[in-house]
Design a protein around this nucleic acid. Structure first.
Lengths: 116, 116
DNA sequence: ATGATAGATTGATGATTGTCGATGTACACA
DNA sequence: TGTGTACATCGACAATCATCAATCTATCAT
């Protein structure tokens, strides 16, 4: 660690503040950005919220298409994004597909944001 | 509240689980999505992280251009997005522009995600 | 005044994304 | 077997976005 040698001489010509801790690396930033991108859409936020509002935190697509005012393919697309990002899990029972919240997925990304 | 009348008859032909609480409205979803979209980019996450790693949680653009490997206009653009979204505040002192973290901005959005 | 530097703004471009209609697939019921 | 339903996938299109080179603005030094 080279942080101990450079004394913070407060030169008026200098523009920079000393670094306290290591900032986030490129790989971690890429990963967190992907998780946040999956969340950063009003339709997907509402989908998560609707699923979370149901008993057992579970809902089928028929519950989700109408309140969003979006077409069924669009809702299916958003659900796929959320499943791929790990926020939802899909279980097919008979004709219907049931989506449920992945435990701790939201809390995990929320924690990463706080520790930024 | 109309939640008290519809009894949850567990019909095997039904596909839907009863609703426990009101899901997020369209306006709230739009607003949170805008905040998250500003965060959902690897370059902007690293910018926030670098600013937070500095003493006084403050940094000028000269600190930020090089470690990201991006051009100066691109970094300025990302900084503007973060300022507009309320995560950073900009203060110009002399020739340099200093960016600092807005208190509680990250914690606020992090809390909204947890309560989804 | 002149030149140099820090940073913002503009314009253009290629990539990504949200949306929908059309189609495909799997299951249920007659 | 055939028909209807629930959902996924595909292809297309418009909109948004990340990025950079070029330019502009403001400040400092000489």
């Amino acid at each position: 660690m080279t942080l101990t040698e450079a004394l913070p001489i407060t030169d008026l010509n200098a523009c920079c503040t000393p670094i306290l801790r290591e900032p986030m690396g490129a790989d971690a930033a890429e990963k967190l950005a992907r998780s946040l991108k999956a969340l950063a859409d009003p339709a997907r936020l509402r989908l998560l919220s609707i699923v979370a509002s149901h008993d057992d935190a579970e809902a089928c697509v028929c519950d989700l298409t109408e309140p969003l005012g979006l077409s069924q393919p669009t809702v299916s697309h958003h659900l796929k994004v959320l499943v791929d990002a790990g926020y939802l899990s899909r279980e097919k029972r008979g004709t219907w597909a049931y989506y449920s919240l992945t435990p701790d997925a939201l809390d995990s990304v929320s924690g990463l944001i706080s520790e930024l």
